[in-house]
């Protein structure tokens, strides 16, 4: 048995224990989709590994910069003045006890603290941009799928147009022409805001399409009819009935959108329209490595590996979540 079917609001708030009385907590364990997914996910070592790496990265990005040395301090005593590269270390990396990841050619800035600060930028931009695109994509996708008709036509066409745009070019152009001072923001605060907006705004159709498709099939189901015949309005059906059922695909594609957005941010920084130097970013560090990598290959490998490990971790977790939450998976 489960909880009594009808409980008026007053009762539930007044005596929650009474309501639950008689419900055997041990008797039968209902397995919700979330619980099944968790049981499956626990067995997926690759996905768990990804989750652990992500957790470590977040901790590092949040607290690392407080413990590490100044990422913008020059250490030119470590640089060979004729070759413009670190004097010692494996592959002229400048790796030492003081500088675990070596130092930058020419300036001698510490790579470890730059990578960690770069992680902060990368994760902040990717998370916020994903939030933007998931919000827009979910709302428009649900609305398009639920209402159908001309609403659906307009939104679907908009998605087609977005997908047909040379997005990278637009993103570069947009970031490139934003003034130095806007909406009370300036400098890197403004840059991060612009990056979040541009990336989020251009990647919503991917999740929008998926949500629309799921909504199309859900809206014909009995529980939606039931809710409507009980007199529920559009708002209730959309957000209380449909949305909870869309949660699984939304979670999966959110997890898979984050690495895409990390790569998007890195690409923009690589092309020179990311955060403003001397603030480090992974893509920016790679583009700095382009003119010097024949001399100092190590300088290019560090930021490349940082991008790779982070994106891979999110992809592993996303794949694991998809397998775990997919009711068709055996």
């Amino acid at each position: 048995m489960t909880a009594p079917i009808e409980v008026s609001k007053g009762e539930a708030e007044a005596h929650p224990e009474d309501v639950l009385k008689g419900v055997g907590t041990q008797a039968i364990q209902g397995r919700s989709l979330g619980r099944i997914a968790w049981l499956r996910l626990k067995r997926d070592r690759a996905a768990l590994g990804g989750a652990v790496v992500i957790a470590l990265l977040i901790l590092l990005a949040a607290f690392g910069p407080f413990f590490l040395q100044d990422p913008n301090a020059y250490h030119q005593d470590l640089i060979d003045p004729t070759m413009q590269r670190p004097k010692d270390g494996f592959l002229h990396s400048g790796i030492s006890w003081e500088h675990w990841f070596g130092v930058e050619p020419t300036t001698g800035r510490d790579m470890l603290s730059r990578i960690v600060l770069g992680a902060r930028i990368s994760l902040i931009v990717a998370f916020l941009a994903t939030l933007v695109s998931v919000t827009i994509g979910t709302v428009l996708g649900v609305v398009a799928g639920y209402f159908g008709g001309w609403v659906d036509t307009v939104i679907s066409r908009a998605m087609d147009v977005f997908l047909a745009f040379p997005l990278l070019l637009f993103a570069i152009a947009l970031v490139g022409v934003v003034p130095d001072d806007m909406l009370g923001l300036r400098g890197n605060g403004l840059r991060v805001g612009v990056l979040v907006f541009v990336i989020g705004f251009f990647s919503w159709p991917y999740i929008g399409r998926i949500v629309r498709g799921q909504t199309l099939s859900l809206r014909e189901r009995e529980f939606v009819d039931a809710s409507r015949s009980l007199g529920a309005g559009h708002g209730h059906v959309l957000f209380k009935e449909l949305l909870p059922n869309l949660l699984a695909p939304i979670i999966v594609y959110t997890t898979l959108l984050i690495p895409t957005n990390i790569l998007f941010e890195a690409a923009l920084s690589f092309l020179g329209v990311g955060v403003i130097p001397p603030m480090p970013s992974w893509g920016g560090m790679l583009s700095l490595a382009v003119p010097t990598y024949q001399n100092t290959p190590f300088f290019m490998i560090i930021p490349g590996l940082a991008i790779f490990v982070t994106v891979m971790a999110f992809n592993l977790l996303g794949d694991g979540l998809r397998d775990a939450l997919d009711p068709r998976a055996r």
């Binding site: 690495p259 690409a267 991008i307």
Partner: peptide, 9 residues
Amino acid sequence: SLPVYFTGL
């Protein structure tokens, strides 16, 4: 998971 500008370099 690898950006093309990294594998290229």
